[in-house]
Simulated scan of single mutants.
Amino acid sequence: MSPRPDTAARQQPSPSSPPSDRVRRFTRAERWVHRTTAALMGVCVATAACLYLPEFAELVGRRDLVVRLHEWAGLLLPLPLLAGLASRALRADLGRLNRFGPHDGTWLREALRGRRGPAGKFNAGQKIYASWLAGATLVMLGTGLVMWFTHLTPLMWRTSATFVHDWLALTLGVVLAGHIGMALRDPESRTGLRTGTVDRAWAEREHELWRP
């Protein structure tokens, strides 16, 4: 006896649902925010290298254009996240990133021993990185504005802002290189940011406390 059409339709997975061996990790809005922010950050880092390293400056030339690209990319950097706040999923994930629990301390201790610790949707390392990057971006934006609008601030402010901006930029470059290196070592994590879904077995192994 064949099932009724409406019953058969309910048994079929929704076209937008991930296969049974995969789980939804990020929405389209979250992936858009990450990609756009990464692109703007990449422009900031690349143009900064052209401004501060003579070898790159000679290859590229057109310093005024590089300066303008650097300034506007830095100014636009917070906008993808601000626009993404319209997404409920993004706001929920920001709450997870800002919330530390006892298991995060355990994760850090295990990580120092080279072992895997318990983690929710985001592990303690990702939470620390996100918090540091948010703070560093705000400081870079503030010091950059002081350097940009030179006629509005005294010389001491501009000198201090330049010092902080330059050294924080170097630190930011090192941290971003580490972030990219970690991502290259975890293909499934990159797949999650590219497609929005991850392998269920990977999620249960790397983020055992996460309940999608």
Rank of each mutant, 00 (worst) to 15 (best):
P19R: 03
G61I: 06
V23P: 05
V23H: 04
T37D: 08
R68W: 11
Y52N: 12
H34F: 13
A73L: 07
C44H: 01
G61H: 03
R35E: 06
A38V: 14
P80E: 05
T27W: 07
P13M: 00
D64L: 09
G74I: 10
P13G: 00
A48H: 06
T36I: 13
C50T: 12
R31F: 05
P15C: 04
H34P: 06
D64G: 05
A48L: 09
P78F: 08
P54E: 06
R31Q: 11
A73I: 02
V23K: 08
R31K: 13
H34N: 07
S14E: 03
L65T: 10
E55M: 12
A39N: 08
P78H: 09
C44K: 04
T36N: 10
F56E: 04
S16T: 12
R28D: 10
M41D: 07
M41E: 08
L51P: 01
L77D: 03
L77V: 11
L75K: 07
V60A: 14
L59R: 13
P18T: 05
A57F: 00
L79Y: 06
L65E: 04
L76N: 05
H34V: 09
L40G: 07
D64P: 00
L79F: 14
L53Q: 02
T36W: 10
E30K: 09
A46K: 01
R28M: 11
P19W: 05
R24W: 11
L75N: 05
R62T: 11
